[in-house]
Structures are given as C-alpha cells and as structure tokens.
Design a protein around this nucleic acid. Structure first.
Lengths: 132, 132
DNA sequence: TAACACTATGTAATAATATAACATTTACAA
DNA sequence: TTGTAAATGTTATATTATTACATAGTGTTA
C-alpha cells in the first residue's frame, strides 16, 4: 500500500489540468491556464509542479521543459521513467515496458556508481508522422 | 571514415573550453569564460553549442542544462547517449557500454514508433560520495 | 485546546536560460 | 567570380526558473 497524497488546492488545480491535457504542458502555459482560478504567479506553479514530480503524479520531459501526468497507475516508477517523443508532431507518451525497466533498473557498470534513478527519452517518428 | 568537421573560430573556442572542463558547463558560464576572446553575446555561444551538438562533438545534459565533450572518440553515437550523474557532487560522465547501447538502439515496442535516437540519464551516488 | 512543526500559499523582484530579427562577413565550390 | 551556405555580430526580447520574505492552513501531540 502506497502513501496517499492529498493534494492541496493549487496542486490539485494544476494536476487536473496536466492530467486532462493530451500533450505535455509547459510551466507558463499552465500559469496562463490557471490564472482564472487564482493562481497568479510563476512560483505558485513551480511549487506545485515540484511537489507533483516529487510524489510521482507527473513527470518532467527534460528535453522539452514540459510536464505530463504519470501514466503508470500509481507512479511507483517515478524513479524509472521512459518516454517516446515524436520529433515531428511532438507527441509524447510514457513507455511502460517491464523488460526495459528491469534492464535499466538493474544496470550496473564498472564505475562503482550506484544508480537509483534514471530517465530515458526516445526520439523518432510516430506511426502517423512516419506515414506522411 | 567519418566526415571531418572543421570547426569555425567560435566553435573551436567553445569546444576547447568544454573539452578541457572536468565538469559540464552551462551556456552563460561559457559566455563569461570566452568574453576575453571576443565572444560577447549569448547567441554566439548558443549557435556554436547547437552546431557542436549537431555534429556530436558535445552533448547536452538535459537535466542540468549543461554541456560536456563527447567521450566516445568519434561521436558516432551522438544519437545514442547515456550519462551517469552523481546527485551529490554533480559529477557527470558519459557511459560507454556496448551492451546497453545495443539494447537501447534495438528497442522497439508496440507503439509502432520508429526510434532513431535516445538519451538516457542515470542518477545516483558516485563511489566517492557513497562512502562519505 | 494550546503549542508546535510542517506544509502550503501569496507577492514582488530578479536570475538564468534561450531565441527572434536583421545586417554583414567568410568559406568554398561551381 | 559569382553564387550559396555557413558563420558572425549586435540588439532586443522571450522563456524558464528561483530568491527572499511574509502569512496562512493542517495535522500532530502534550
């Protein structure tokens, strides 16, 4: 049983927006979208984003500075994230592949480094864009 | 035989700086460091960085907005990058592991997406920081 | 319930990262 | 030697993110 996180007001507003979005959202685009709900300043957005990332409800797509909701039901794998990104239409989706996550979670090399987290971004053309 | 890229003046100045640095460098830190060599504006730095990334001489560490020189002799793998990042001392090094790169380059799932590039960042504690 | 710690919020200012637009120059192949 | 692509120079501005400080809410626990 994992910890229940009761989202605060701002966290909930921002999570709902991201969760409903079919595409990753950028911080300032979030800001513009929630101003009618009383969230007026960048910091309010960034604080909520930080928390949501921390508890695994959303992930940051580093190469795009954008955020998407976790697709993997309970975010246990927020320390092991993989995404596919279409370089044409910019569609992003979270990859949920147990072989891949096992392989990467168990990866070790000669560096003596202990890895406890990874983030992987694949780039390419999605089905639609490929056939254009 | 791979293509020879003759770096331009600005590209060379900036590559040399990054190549000599033991740690990833950020764009504005690069800017401050090369002002004495006549590079005065952010755009001059970003243009050189873009080109150097494009030809694989350097890589961008997305989670850090910083740049490091390619460690893999000829940068053939600039479309297949993997890094280990120490979350304590922020040391970054490029992972050169043929099994890993083969595994990821050949990765395919049911999405129908054709992947032609990936970037992987591992996080953890390096040997030194682990033993502290 | 009072005291405490912790989390979240509000607000203003500013720092850090990156790009647009336009003019000019250089490299070099046709 | 002319055409073209790449690179440069410069100013302004857009985008992304944080610092600093004050206040308010939430949930223990004494």
């Amino acid at each position: 049983m994992e910890k229940q996180h009761n989202l605060s007001k701002n966290q909930k507003i921002i999570f709902d927006l991201i969760d409903k979005s079919p595409e990753p959202l950028k911080a300032y685009s979030i800001l513009f979208n929630v101003q009618k709900k009383g969230i007026k300043a960048p910091l309010q957005v960034y604080r909520a984003l930080d928390k949501l990332v921390e508890i695994g409800k959303i992930h940051k797509i580093e190469s795009r500075n954008a955020f998407i909701a976790c697709q993997n039901s309970s975010c246990q794998i927020s320390k092991a994230t993989a995404f596919s990104i279409c370089e044409s239409c910019e569609n992003v989706s979270e990859i949920s592949n147990s072989k891949l996550s096992k392989y990467l979670s168990n990866f070790a090399d000669e560096s003596g480094m202990k890895y406890n987290k990874y983030n992987l971004e694949f780039f390419g053309l999605c089905k639609k864009c490929k056939s254009k």
